[in-house]
Structures are given as C-alpha cells and as structure tokens.
Design a protein around this nucleic acid. Structure first.
Length: 319
DNA sequence: CGTGTTTGACCAGCGC
DNA sequence: GCGCTGGTCAAACACG
C-alpha cells in the first residue's frame, strides 16, 4: 500500500500531468482560517486539533492570496502556522503584520515532555496499563505544529523523511480516516498527521509536530548547482512540495514591501530552530529572512530540514 | 530478518 | 461520573 503510494508520488512529481498548469494556485496563510474548506463541523475536528477556534470570514479573506500561475504545478497549498493557544490567537491582528501568531507556550518548554512515545518506549516493556504515568497536573504539552494543505491524489506525501505509521483513526463526520506517522529515526520524535479534507477530497491536510533532529535520511543532499535536471529527480524524496509556491510568493511580498506572513513555516516547518521561549511565527520569519537573504545559497543548502528536502533542487536553483 | 502497515484496545482530555 | 473523541500502543501481519 505504502509502496503504491510512493510510486504515485514519483509520478506526482515528475509526470507531465502534474506539471500541467491550473489557472491559479491558491495559497492561504497562515491561520487556520486559511483553510477555506473549513465549512462544516467535520473539518472542525482538525481545527480543534490545531487548537484554533476562531474562524472569522473576514480574516479568511484577508489572508488568502491568489497568484497567477507561472509554471504552476497542479498543487494547492494552504500553509498554516499553528503554534499558539487560542487565546493568543485572539490577539488583535494587525493587517500588515503577520498576524499570526505568536508565541506559543505550547510545546516549547524545555521540560521533558511526557509524551507517550519517546522515552516511554523503553520503559514500556511492562504492560501498558501500569506504565504511562503520564501527565500529572500539567496539561499535555505538544510540539509546535504546522499544517498545510496539498492538493494531491496521494495521502502520504513524500517529504524526504521516513515515516512509520503508528495509527489510524476515523475522523468524526468525515469519511476519510486520519493517519498518524512518526519519524522512524531514533531520537527524533517528529510526528505528522495526514488526513483528507472532507469538503474537498482532493486536498490532503498534513500536520507536522515537532522538529527533526537529523537531516533527511532519504534524500542525499542535493547539489543545488545542478544535480537535478529538468527532466526529473534522482530521488523520490525530492517530492515537489508546493512550498516552492510560497517561496515565490514570499519574495513577491518582499518586493512589494508588504510584510508577508510567516511563510517561513511553510518552507520549512520543521527545519527551523524554535526552541526559544519566545518563539512565534514572526520570529520564525525573521530567522528565515535572516538566513535566506544574507546568504541565499548557503542558507538553503545548509540546514533547512524539510525545505531542502521538499523543494526540488531545480526550483531552489531558480530562487 | 528488517521494516513498515493494519487494527483493536487502551488512555487522557473534555464537555455534559 | 459518563460518554465521546483524539491520540497512542503493540501484536499480528505483509512484504522485499
């Protein structure tokens, strides 16, 4: 099954069908409200999962951007930053600034998190019942999460990392199940959830949680100076995550001197260091901006986690 | 044999 | 307290 998907991903990347263009690519940033398919309760489950509750239409309008297609892949991405508790999101949003977000206390603690998956694994030779002295008085803490929508036939999009599926649950009011994946690399507890939009079955919603503590194990570091030909990719891991779109858009905004949203999260949701207590979307943006614009080539090459794994090298080359 | 998926059961959080 | 739901575990299974 998974293998079949992998094959499909390859086709997804390289096939002429995929490279054919659509009229536009719609990209929404970076609030949950950006999920324009959220129009019923079925999707709310996901929104709740993301910890967002306010779905203001006006905000939605504000953050949605449509850009004309220029070599636009048939992909729709809605990038999203979800790293804040709802109360933080309710902060007055300045239209120009990246509204978004904000500091998230959630999951950014240095404190060891009692997540059932990590260290617990070793101790879990015992029965499940007697172990799991999980959270005591503290609420469950989560890593910052980043979600984006991708218009794709396949549910599990290749992103250069290796994932192990550890669960699948039916989503309330949705015919499509949600799959849970964990990074297979030891000591890396990045997780991701994949589900298909109920309203638009062609849209896959992927939510990443946590940060990779390692480079992509699948894709050899591409040589951005020309390793990837125009004809294809040497690795399936070079899946052309529509991030490229956001990058372009980001640059557009730069040119227009219009403070963009923290698209940085859409480039590399997990590749940035966000271990600070004051981490927020804006600071992500600043971080990325700094790295990207001070040394575009090297910054991208160096360590952008998903970015360099998701964005085809020939795309980056163009940037 | 190693790796990954499937799937039922379990657990915690939350609302009532 | 109870029921619902999301998230996770882990045994069984499939596959190369």
């Amino acid at each position: 099954m998974e293998r079949k998907e992998a094959v499909k991903v390859e086709n997804f990347v390289g096939s002429p069908t995929f490279s054919s263009t659509t009229d536009h690519v719609q990209t929404s940033y970076p609030f949950v409200q950006g999920f324009d398919f959220v129009d019923d309760k079925s999707s709310l489950g996901f929104m709740e999962l993301l910890g967002v509750q306010d779905f203001s239409p006006s905000l939605l309008d504000m953050i949605q951007v449509q850009i004309p297609s220029v070599q636009t892949p048939n992909v729709q991405v809605v990038t999203e930053v979800v790293e804040s508790p709802p109360e933080v999101l309710n902060q007055p949003a300045t239209p120009n600034s990246s509204t978004i977000s904000s500091a998230s206390s959630e999951g950014l603690n240095d404190e060891p998190v009692n997540k059932g998956a990590d260290n617990e694994v070793e101790e879990q030779g015992k029965t499940k019942k007697e172990s799991k002295p999980k959270k005591t008085n503290q609420k469950r803490q989560r890593e910052p999460r980043f979600a984006f929508m991708t218009k794709s036939e396949v549910d599990h999009l290749e992103d250069g990392y290796r994932w192990r599926k550890y669960g699948q649950k039916a989503v309330k009011n949705s015919p499509f199940p949600r799959s849970y994946y964990r990074c297979t690399t030891a000591s890396c507890n990045v997780k991701k959830r994949v589900e298909r939009s109920f309203s638009d079955p062609s849209v896959v919603v992927t939510t990443y949680e946590g940060q990779h503590t390692h480079p992509s194990p699948v894709m050899p570091r591409p040589n951005f100076t020309g390793s990837a030909s125009d004809s294809g990719f040497s690795s399936p891991a070079a899946f052309a995550m529509p991030m490229q779109r956001t990058l372009s858009l980001y640059q557009q905004h730069q040119i227009q001197q219009q403070p963009p949203f923290p698209l940085v999260n859409s480039f590399s949701p997990l590749g940035l260091s966000c271990n600070g207590s004051s981490t927020n979307a804006a600071s992500y943006l600043q971080q990325y901006e700094k790295r990207f614009y001070t040394s575009p080539g090297s910054a991208l090459l160096k360590d952008h986690g998903l970015l360099q794994d998701l964005v085809p090298s020939h795309m980056l080359k163009e940037e």
